[in-house]
Design a protein around this nucleic acid. Structure first.
Length: 302
DNA sequence: AAAGCGTGGAG
DNA sequence: TCTCCAAGCTT
């Protein structure tokens, strides 16, 4: 096992991407913002937004001093805007409860809004060199193949996966710390979900999945519905709200909505449909876009 | 605990 | 074109 540790860690030192939140001396806040943005979002799309956020809000208290709507607008088109809402709330909590210092223990991080098992372990490990067991989608996939001989991990994380992740960790703290990010990077660059680059894999010889003849996945992932959903409605509404610095009169707001193809039609139909459906659309808006809507003076049909 | 939550690029 | 997927979290 130590052979595998050294091989993957060495591979990382040679092949890791030069990402700004991995630079030496980055703050806990810089790591934390990157982790929020990277939840379900590719690195290339996060990079420019992260740079802008760090320029504008270099400390938690800087973001906490802003209205939520600014965070939502600056979130841009990263998707899942409630992450911006939770990051803002976390910044407020760090400012009031931790004197502006991002907490360094997993338990403290886990208690903040928007931070779950993965993000807590990641921030503690990457920013503060705490010994944690990081389990993300990349690591789950590498473990499933390398140790489990399976094409893909189970659709949702199992307790057994966390147990295995703990068991395969290096004993030495420093090596374990590097192992976390190394396995993750291997999953991101080589051991990818679709068409893995096994020819470039440093542990090709040790891989249980390869040894088993690379069997196909034992399940077919189900895609998420999009057309006609509340999410599509919110997406269309948020897209318009983001682009306005000033108040958007209801009439021009609805006109903008009508001009949006597809999503706009769905949103408009919802907003003008019978009460129960309209309430669903409004409820969705209220969850993510209430502050931005209020700031813009949006008054939806009632 | 399964479902809901945005967005855009790759294959 | 259409499906899958990307450093998950919350209820």
């Amino acid at each position: 096992m130590q052979q595998i540790h050294d091989t993957i860690n060495d591979w990382y030192l040679e092949n890791a991407r030069d990402l700004p939140w991995r630079r030496p001396g980055v703050s806990g806040w810089e790591v934390m913002v990157s982790e929020f943005m990277l939840q379900q979002t590719p690195v290339v799309r996060v990079l420019p937004v992260w740079e802008e956020w760090m320029r504008r809000w270099p400390r938690p208290q800087d973001l906490a001093a802003e209205p939520l709507s600014e965070a939502l607008k600056a979130w841009g088109r990263l998707g899942y805007p409630r992450r911006a809402q939770r990051l803002h709330a976390a910044a407020v909590e760090i400012t009031t409860e931790y004197n502006g210092e991002v907490p360094r223990t997993e338990a403290q991080l886990l208690a903040l809004p928007g931070i779950g098992d993965y993000t807590a372990a990641a921030i503690a490990c990457f920013a503060f060199a705490e010994r944690t067991v990081v389990v993300d989608t990349n690591i789950r996939r590498v473990h499933a193949r390398l140790f489990g001989g399976m094409a893909l991990p189970e659709p949702s994380p199992r307790a057994s996966e966390f147990a295995r992740a703990r068991e395969v960790q290096p004993e030495d703290d420093r090596t374990a710390n590097l192992w976390n990010v190394s396995v993750m990077e291997l999953g991101a660059l080589v051991c990818t979900a679709r068409s893995p680059k096994c020819g470039q894999c440093p542990v090709f010889e040790q891989c249980a999945w390869v040894a088993g003849g690379q069997p196909a996945p034992h399940y077919t992932p189900k895609g998420q519905a999009w057309k006609g959903t509340d999410r599509q409605v919110r997406g269309a509404i948020m897209a318009i709200l983001r682009e306005h610095e000033e108040a958007v009169p209801q009439q021009s707001f609805l006109a903008d909505l009508a001009q949006e193809s597809d999503a706009g039609y769905v949103a408009l139909a919802r907003l003008q449909s019978p009460l129960d459906q309209r309430e669903r659309a409004l409820a969705g808006l209220l969850k993510d876009g209430l502050a931005i809507a209020e700031d813009n003076g949006i008054r939806l049909p009632s």
